[in-house]
């Protein structure tokens, strides 16, 4: 974390959090005093050099807060008299968001696995097995010859043949694991196992469907989320909703000769896991792209163009800020 502060009628401070920063360079392009410079984005993303993605010149920075207002991942924080401008009515507000409906969520963990920023954590409690099956099982220890056929066969690892003395054994069934499949009963050479499955017979009367459900908690950490849309795309029950910071498209220059697997700079810097190299050419999946432009900046062939048509930033009251911010959508 690096901060720039200046005291006057107001105390202003700008703080860059490199852990949140994705190296997109939007702040660099928007700074009215050209006080922000991009670091070596690709070597940083690949972990080859230990530097911050951006450098802010504290002598020329005018502490206007424009960079913090447009940063799509909130990596820059601007405070006036210790108050974040994001909480002030006079400053722009992002209409970007990611939400997971905890009521609709079935705790399948698809989003947790897919999230490229590890921003989602699912903690779940499975239903108890005894609430899902009904039955009875008993081993006649006198008939049992301790052959362990049942132990080897049991698909649920519910049976153990324990040695209790020099020549004595006991065959124990763990009823938390047994699902009364009756494989042991059928295979037992001495008919020592008595078992019955009544799950089907009593499924409508003795089993409670409320107890079949997996319960749990799902937490989406807004500090790591980049609103890429993976959770929304992958969720099988439409419980995730994402509003991205920008709308528009990515265009590959048709003349460009993509070096694919020998370069893959775009893939390494993409914070959204939206890039893949397919048949030697970079491909960007628009479903997951947030149009941040990090890939376009590192492409040595300069073959990627980000065409933003809309920025979901509201309440831009200053005309000069409006002009400046419109450069993100017009490219000028």
């Amino acid at each position: 974390m690096k901060s720039i502060t200046r005291e006057g009628d107001e105390n202003r401070s700008l703080t860059h959090n490199n852990d949140k920063c994705i190296g997109c360079g939007i702040c660099t392009s928007i700074c009215p005093t050209k006080s922000i410079k991009n670091g070596p984005i690709l070597p940083i993303a690949r972990g080859l050099v230990d530097m911050d993605y951006i450098n802010i010149n504290k002598n020329s920075c005018c502490l206007c807060g424009l960079c913090a207002s447009v940063c799509p991942v909130d990596a820059l924080e601007f405070k006036i008299d210790d108050k974040n401008i994001k909480e002030m009515d006079t400053y722009p507000k992002w209409d970007k968001d990611a939400k997971i409906d905890t009521e609709a969520c079935v705790h399948c963990k698809a989003c947790e696995t897919a999230c490229p920023q590890d921003a989602i954590k699912v903690a779940r409690t499975l239903p108890r097995r005894e609430d899902l099956v009904l039955g009875e099982i008993e081993v006649d220890q006198d008939k049992c010859i301790n052959c362990k056929i049942c132990e080897e066969l049991c698909p649920g690892d519910a049976i153990t043949v324990k040695q209790t003395g020099r020549e004595t054994y006991e065959t124990v069934v763990d009823e938390d694991k047994c699902v009364y499949c009756l494989v042991c009963k059928r295979a037992c050479p001495t008919d020592a196992i008595k078992a019955v499955c009544s799950s089907c017979v009593y499924q409508d009367t003795k089993l409670d469907p409320e107890k079949f459900k997996t319960s749990g908690n799902i937490v989406l950490n807004p500090d790591s989320c980049v609103n890429c849309g993976w959770c929304e795309e992958i969720c099988p029950v439409d419980a995730a909703k994402v509003t991205k910071p920008f709308e528009g498209e990515v265009i590959f220059d048709e003349e460009m000769v993509c070096k694919g697997d020998s370069c893959h700079a775009c893939l390494d810097v993409c914070p959204c896991n939206a890039v893949s190299i397919t048949e030697g050419h970079s491909e960007i999946d628009k479903r997951f792209c947030i149009l941040c432009g990090a890939c376009a900046n590192v492409c040595p062939q300069k073959g990627i163009q980000i065409k933003r048509t809309k920025i979901n930033l509201d309440n831009i009251r200053s005309k000069s800020w409006q002009n400046r911010i419109s450069s993100l959508t017009t490219g000028k």
Binding site: S262, C263, A265, P300, Q301
Partner: peptide, 10 residues
């Protein structure tokens, strides 16, 4: 060399 130009750029 595959002409990717990563070295030139960085």
């Amino acid at each position: 060399c595959n002409d990717c130009e990563l070295c030139i750029m960085n």
